[in-house]
């Protein structure tokens, strides 16, 4: 059974704006699911609806089999949420803030666990500091510590690395992998395609409130991934010769020819192209191939 089941979920705001449109989505236990989408696509609305912050207009959400409206206490006890905005109380200590989050979920005090979470997030030496004294990156990590304080089975990370430096981003990726190893299901939204590429098992693309696609990351890249062959010419040419029109080539700076082809097709016509170049006496010094990145796939999908 999936740990999260979303069926026919829609959200229409009072003004008539449809933020979510008939969403159907199953999340498997222990996976890392990346939800991609442009600004205003409905990523945060979807997360907020699952976590109980937004009332759905129709449809149902089940968390570990518990309906998030009728059995909301059971459903929410599984969930940890790290929101996009850095919303924290400024005047209390890091330890108190994290302990408060744990107590809100009805869990008994466990200083050892709190300290271990803070240690994992490199915040242990800041445990007695007031939140207002933390840097942006530290605050972001503290938000994660708060979400982890009640040992959730599902962790929502809404744009977890927005505005953090490369080093911190990498340490967060490490943490996410570690959490997954411990059986936590992770659902993250991100603008950074490389983040999804690096971490996710499956990718979901949402656009204009609708799930456009849900696919295993590897098969998505394989299925939609285009390859590009770049031919670096020895001598500059003003235009692409007519004899090569059949290949839909592009010429850059007179010195680089690029040829896009489908990796999955049996006959990608590369041999034919190389033969034609020799036939026409066009000499080249290098050949390079490049796989489409997830970002390029994503841009194609939301066009």
């Amino acid at each position: 059974m999936p740990i999260l089941q979303i069926k026919n979920l829609s959200k229409v705001y009072k003004g008539g704006f449809t933020a979510l449109k008939d969403i159907n989505l199953d999340i498997k236990q222990g996976e890392i699911f990346a939800l991609l989408g442009p600004n205003g696509a409905g990523k945060t609305t979807l997360i907020s609806t699952i976590c109980g912050l937004v009332n759905p207009t129709s449809g149902s959400i089940k968390v570990a089999g518990h309906d998030n409206l009728t059995e909301y206490k059971d459903a929410r006890s599984y969930i940890g949420l790290v929101p996009q905005e850095l919303t924290t109380d400024a005047f209390i200590s890091v330890r108190d803030a994290v302990s408060f989050s744990r107590a809100l979920f009805g869990k008994k005090k466990d200083q050892q666990l709190i300290e271990s979470i803070l240690k994992d997030l490199s915040l242990l030496d800041k445990k007695d500091s007031r939140i207002m004294a933390l840097s942006g990156g530290m605050k972001r990590r503290m938000m994660i510590a708060k979400a982890l304080s009640h040992e959730p089975k599902i962790l929502f990370l809404d744009e977890p690395t927005a505005g953090v430096d490369v080093k911190l981003r990498e340490s967060m990726w490490e943490l996410v992998h570690k959490l997954r190893e411990n059986g936590v299901t992770i659902i993250l939204t991100t603008h950074y395609i490389e983040e999804a590429e690096e971490m996710a098992d499956r990718i979901g693309v949402i656009n204009k409130g609708q799930i456009v696609l849900v696919e295993e990351k590897k098969s998505l890249m394989k299925k939609l991934g285009k390859k590009e062959l770049t031919i670096d010419l020895k001598e500059s040419m003003p235009d692409i010769p007519e004899e090569l029109n059949d290949f839909s080539l592009k010429l850059h700076s007179g010195l680089h020819l690029t040829y896009s082809y489908d990796d999955q097709k049996e006959d990608n016509r590369i041999g034919e192209l190389i033969g034609k170049l020799s036939e026409l006496g066009i000499e080249y010094k290098d050949l390079k191939t490049k796989q489409s990145s997830l970002e390029e796939i994503f841009v194609e999908l939301v066009k």
Binding site: C51, G52, L53, A75, L81, T87, T88, L104, K146
Partner: peptide, 14 residues
């Protein structure tokens, strides 16, 4: 005002 209400509203409390 500060947005921290999310924490209370997403917790398993009535």
């Amino acid at each position: 005002f500060s947005g921290t209400i999310y924490e209370v509203l997403s917790a398993p409390i009535s």
